[in-house]
Amino acid sequence: MLNVKKEFGHFQAVDHVTLNIEPNEFFTLLGPSGCGKTTLLRMMAGFETPTSGEILLDKRSIAGLLPNERPINTVFQNYALFPHMTVAENIGFGLKMLGRSRAEIAPIVEEMLRLVRLEGAGDRPVTKLSGGQQQRVALARALAPRPKVLLLDEPLSALDLKLRQSMQIELKRLQAETGITFVFVTHDQEEALTMSDRIAVMSKGRVLQVGSARDIYEHPADRFVAGFIGETNFLEGAIVEAKGKVARVRLKSGADVAAAMAEGLPTTGDVTIVVRPEHLQIAADKDAALCATVETVVYFGTDSHVHLRLADGSPVIVRQQNRRDGTRPPDVGAEVGLSIPDGVAQVLKD
């Protein structure tokens, strides 16, 4: 759907990004602030012009169209509701600008109010609403003209945790009910994982990986993606033997680990492997391949995070489920063994 580049002076905000967003998809642009995701979104909306490249919508270029000529609507980060209008006037604004009659607009506004669960609030001034309600009005306003694509620019960042979590589910429901393509921008990996059909992880103007939440979490393409999505452990080592998609890696601490390896990576030399904290297991016997000292244990309710240090000094985190069967996380200062089950470690592209 787009293949663009955007420069501000010498700064490349968006660097040769090529993305293909499918119809009816919940697509997320995920990355730290300054990675170019908002610039990309603003180019789709028409507020920025690409320095080079094309933006196609249904195979037609929209690069030359003004924002008001694009069938794309935006939910802004600060909502940007019109403060001098009521809720209903805000929601009906797009349709009014499209030249629809009052008789046509009224039922659509009613439907939108129902959709975002704000029935009966149509006559209220938007300035009297809470943050969560303003958020819903902003959504309804952007959905009312039934755009081909809905752009959402970090719309949940101003809400508190509880509200944010319920809005995540709400957004997913709205997307399913309306069948509109959602392009969602966020720096919050949890938001991205819970809502998206597919995620594009961005850094420094480039797209590093595109895939489903599961793909990206379980098979991160490189070190940045692995570190940005969820908690993870990086272990240094060298390849001893590479056979097809599995490599045997000897870690600096001396243990051998079998790790999955993508095709096309070098089959010799130093590598980093990545293991998710929930995949590591603490073994009672100290004779296990990996030995570590427990430094801190943090209780999180459903699970505990055990911070350990390996013999060679590198830190490791293990996530253990808290069960009621009496198993308890190890004591601080204890020497424990660690085991890495087959198939959970992965060799990273650096």
Binding site: G46, P67, E69
Partner: peptide, 22 residues
């Protein structure tokens, strides 16, 4: 807030209508 102008343009208002209504 200039994003209000952006919001109006995003909702199909021409530059003149953006001025007139927002």
């Amino acid at each position: 807030d200039t994003t209000l102008d952006n919001a109006a343009a995003d909702l199909y208002a021409t530059p003149w209508k953006t001025f007139r209504y927002v």
